[in-house]
Design a protein around this nucleic acid. Structure first.
Length: 918
RNA sequence: GGGCGCGUAGCUCAGCGGUAGAGCACUACCUUGACAUGGUAGGGGUCACUGGUUCGAUCCCAGUCGUGCCCA
């Protein structure tokens, strides 16, 4: 083995091997409860970002772990066609060539998207392979595969037949750039600064005016009324009067509606039913006309006064304001912060817009989905997220599922020339169902379905539904869904609703919600901020210049480039080193706490790379010690051997409980601490004297334990760090004569029982060594200098332990000899260390002056006295002794005794030194 | 306005009723035959603040301040 761990050398080859051998395709016939995770399908043309890498790591840990438990285990991969996102990318690409989708026509455009999909669709899969994701590629699915598309159509028709899908004209969120409706979830409301214009509406009779305030003055052109609160005494007499609607020559009524907040502004509200969701409702109540003044691109249309027709909405706003001002009708303009709705893809301000759209009536689907979580059939982890789920589900709105796009599942509805709508699996089916013969001309609905419609079916369509396949039968309901909180509404809730409706069962039993990855300062990672890290760059490393180039090209706002470049050069003056996939994965596991946000700290990746190196070198040591040595199952183990096996068992039990609770952070920490702080720091060190000085049998036992513990630890680590564990395992398996070609398919290690005797012995050894090392360090005794250690006091147990451990202690503590001395022995020339009742006297023979040693002891005494005082106060408190549980009191009593003894020892020693005139 | 979080060592975060923990950073010493991507020892925290419950509060409760997110 090489002296240093170099991930690049070992990570390349294993993935292909695993994949080729079919390890990731589940054996459905295996015993054990099936385990299944659905990969949240990434956008087919997307690339892997930190969030994916994090999520994939969690899923891979769970998958590999359950596979090792011997369960038929499926991690189902696939990609999403991502309607709007993909169409936008292709449209922009075409636009750069001066072509619009309309130039191409529908068919040619959709072909172009498919070509783009074929061209760039493999990126994210290649990246997932780099991450070591053990998904079943053989059964990869795409939301627009024929089978999945058929399932979508079938679901649509079924819901339609149930009366749960209908076509209605109502206000939708309209994206004027993409020319499509959006669901509420696809609209981002953000606070922006704007203005509040106060406008006078003259009364038709009797002079005077009402003042209304608006943030969108151009909508005035579509006003149908002005509303006041029915109990607002200022205006009650005016209800029923008419107002001159400025700039239009129209007259509109004053109406009363308790939607109006009399406290806000003047208490008068303009009502524009065709361009505002609230006003729409008011309009319905009062039978007001819908005056649609906008075109699909949000320019002003025919229903607007001629002067404004053809103007863009923002241009029209300026003109309206100027014209009002000129007419003396603009009373006041205030600065005002308002919530502006923007399309999440285009970033354009969304307009409420009156169109025909398809809706899913969600109420009847939501009810059982709420019950599924209430009853615990679906469990959120952390539990808290169920509140968010209920909050939304209890206030859920009908789902607008039609999109005016070309890329996606086309709506299976056909229109005749008389306004009739005919739904069916295909045109023939639609005719059959509506009893239409071929003489009736039908044209299919131009719209496609919301991307999330097909995603909602993902857990069962990927497994073969509507066919009752073996896979569906085995793996549905799936075990756990791993996802971010940002798509609980978009996806999780809808999967539960659709799953229950179409399979009669929940799609998954648990939903593990993880946090969002942010940068080191807690900022959201985004291209425009220039703080994006590419997981592949953390694996392979990247030089500064390419990193700068990567972060500054293709920006939406190129003027940000210099700032981003500066920040990048400051943060990564030497680029990013190659940490390797395993280090990155281990870091993700480390960071997977219960909180919401995760600030990604590069220092931790480095620390975990070092951890991999530690593991690598430990393995190197073990293999060096066992090379060419036949290792057989030992008949007797030393206390050190028993101790490390006991500790391994404890760690494995802890690990399993953390994995069961989705606490990857605690799980990875348990592994880290065991490997580094117990196996490497202590057991490997303890093995050295054992191998040098032991009998043949003892040496065999030590070698066997070194190998066994390493091999089991590798297995426990494997789900987290698959590459390095496979690489090492391949070398550790032969000396242990283990079956199996790969660690991937080895069983999960069984935890040995705790061995209290061995644990106690090891703790004693550690305490003695620490005490001696502390003296050595604090008195600056060179590490190379051997020490004499005199032993005083102590129990019979101490004497026995010393007997068993003397060789170890001498070797590890650089101690030349131990010598038991009587209580009367002169300790004035010695440094003193205490281990329980045992005194370790280390003769210094002038190595250190007395005042130095006195100072050292005083420091110890200080700490000890404080602890003693606390302890005394506690035991002196009758209410504590009376009320606290017995074991707590007993523990405190023991502590008190310990502190008292230690303080006495230290004081005595200080006095002895003082007697020397130091 | 409603809802959900968070505030613990210089930084990133665990812990969540019984004497404060990790990684990174820091100090001193050490190239000893696994590892300097290392070893040994050490420094550093009135656990945001104020009250309350309790024998005992970083942990539970209430409030205040700061901060983040979601929904309207």
């Amino acid at each position: 083995m090489d002296k240093s761990y170099s991930p690049a050398d070992i990570e390349r080859r294993w993935y292909e091997t695993w994949d080729e051998r079919g390890y990731f395709t589940p054996d459905i016939d295996a015993d054990g409860a099936p385990f299944c995770i659905m990969l949240p399908p990434p956008n087919v043309t997307g690339s892997l970002h930190m969030g994916h890498a994090f999520q994939d790591t969690i899923m891979d840990i769970l998958t590999r772990y359950h596979r090792m438990l011997g369960r038929p285990t499926l991690w189902q991969p696939g990609t999403d066609h991502a309607g709007i996102a993909t169409q936008m990318v292709v449209e922009r690409k075409l636009a750069s060539e001066g072509v619009s989708r309309h130039d191409l026509g529908r068919e040619a455009f959709v072909d172009a998207v498919w070509r783009w999909k074929e061209e760039s669709g493999g990126t994210i899969e290649r990246q997932m392979r780099r991450l070591g994701a053990s998904v079943d590629w053989e059964h990869h699915r795409f939301t627009m595969d024929d089978a999945l598309s058929d399932a979508v159509t079938r679901v649509f028709v079924d819901l339609f037949d149930d009366g749960l899908i209908e076509r209605r004209k109502r206000l939708v969120n309209w994206d004027p750039e993409l020319h499509t409706a959006l669901s509420d979830l696809e609209v981002i409301n953000e606070e922006e600064s704007g203005h509040l214009w106060h406008i006078r509406y003259p009364l038709v009779s009797g002079g005077g005016h009402l003042v209304v305030a608006t943030t969108r003055p151009e909508t005035l052109l579509g006003d149908a009324a002005v509303a006041v609160h029915p109990e607002d005494e200022r205006y009650t007499s005016l209800v029923g009067e008419e107002l001159e609607l400025p700039l239009t020559g129209r007259r509109i009524p004053v109406i009363a509606d308790d939607y109006v907040d009399p406290e806000f502004g003047t208490g008068c509200v303009k009502i524009t039913p065709a361009h505002d969701f609230n006003d729409y409702d008011v309009g319905q109540r009062h039978d007001l006309p819908l005056i649609n003044v906008l075109e699909p691109d949000a320019s002003l249309g025919d229903e607007a006064p001629e002067a404004y027709r053809g103007l863009d909405r923002f241009e029209a706003r300026k003109r309206v304001v100027a014209d009002l001002d000129e007419a003396g009708l603009l009373e006041q303009v205030d600065n005002h912060t308002l919530m502006v709705p923007r399309g999440d893809r285009s970033g354009q301000v969304v307009e409420p817009y009156l169109t025909d759209q398809w809706y899913v009536k969600i109420g009847p689907l939501a009810r059982p989905a709420i019950e599924a979580v209430e009853s615990g059939k679906v469990r959120f982890v952390p539990e808290n997220w169920s509140k968010t789920y209920f909050e939304w589900m209890n206030n859920i709105q009908d789902w607008c599922i039609s999109r005016q796009l070309w890329w996606g599942h086309r709506i299976p509805a056909w229109y005749d020339d008389h306004g009739g709508v005919h739904v069916g699996r295909d045109e023939a089916d639609a005719r059959r169902r509506s009893k239409l013969d071929d003489s009736v001309a039908l044209r299919q609905d131009e719209d496609v379905l919301d991307t999330w419609f097909s995603s909602a079916l993902w857990p069962f369509t990927t497994l073969g539904w509507p066919d009752q396949t073996r896979r569906l039968d085995t793996f549905y309901p799936t075990s756990v869904l791993v996802t971010g909180f940002d798509i609980i509404f978009f996806w999780v809730a809808r999967m539960i609703m659709m799953g229950l409706r179409f399979t009669g069962d929940v799609p998954f039993h648990e939903v593990y919600i993880h946090g969002l990855i942010r940068d080191g300062r807690g900022q959201k990672m985004s291209k425009s901020k220039g703080n994006v890290l590419d997981p592949i760059d953390l694996i392979d490393g990247i030089e500064l210049e390419p990193l700068v180039a990567k972060r500054t090209t293709g920006l939406m706002q190129p003027r940000m480039a210099p700032d981003i470049e500066k920040a990048t050069r400051r943060e990564f003056p030497d680029g990013i080193p190659a940490f390797g996939c395993d280090a990155l994965r281990f870091t993700f596991a480390n960071l997977a706490t219960t909180g919401r946000d995760i600030s990604f700290d590069l220092g931790r990746v480095e620390g975990n790379r070092n951890f991999c190196n530690k593991l690598w070198n430990a393995a190197r040591y073990v293999l060096m010690q066992t090379e060419g040595q036949p290792v057989t199952a030992p008949e007797q183990l030393s206390l050190a051997d028993r101790w490390i096996l006991s500790r391994l068992g404890a760690m494995l039990r802890e690990l399993q409980s953390h994995l069961a609770g989705y606490r990857m952070d605690l799980a990875s920490q348990a592994l880290y601490e065991f490997v580094w702080n117990e196996y490497c720091d202590w057991y490997l060190e303890l093995s050295k004297p054992a191998l040098q000085e032991g009998t043949d049998e003892e040496r065999n036992a030590t070698r066997h334990t070194l190998l066994t513990v390493l091999e089991q630890t590798l297995r426990a680590l494997h789900p987290f760090v698959p590459y390095i564990t496979e690489e090492i395992w391949q070398r550790v398996a032969p000396p242990l004569n283990l079956d199996g070609d790969s660690i991937v398919i080895r069983p999960w290690p069984e935890a040995a029982a705790v061995d209290p005797e061995a644990d106690a012995h090891a703790e004693w050894i550690k305490a003695v060594l620490r005490a001696v090392r502390r003296v050595r360090s604090e008195l600056n005794v060179p590490p190379s200098k051997g020490l004499m250690v005199q032993l005083q006091g102590g129990t019979d147990e101490d004497r026995e332990r010393l007997l068993r451990a003397e060789a170890l202690l001498r070797s590890l503590g650089r101690i030349e000899a131990f010598e038991w001395v009587g209580d009367q022995a002169d300790a004035s020339q010695c440094a003193v260390a205490l281990v329980g009742e045992l005194r370790l006297l280390i003769p210094l023979q002038g190595l250190v002056d007395v005042s130095e040693e006195t100072r050292r002891l005083r420091k110890l005494l200080d700490k000890e006295s404080q602890a003693l005082d606390r302890s005394r106060a506690k035991m002196g408190n009758a209410r504590f002794v009376d009320n606290a549980p017995e074991d707590v009191v007993a523990q405190e009593r023991e502590r008190l005794a310990g502190h008292e003894a230690t303080v006495a020892e230290l004081e005595a020693q200080i006095e002895r030194l003082a007697g020397l005139g130091g």
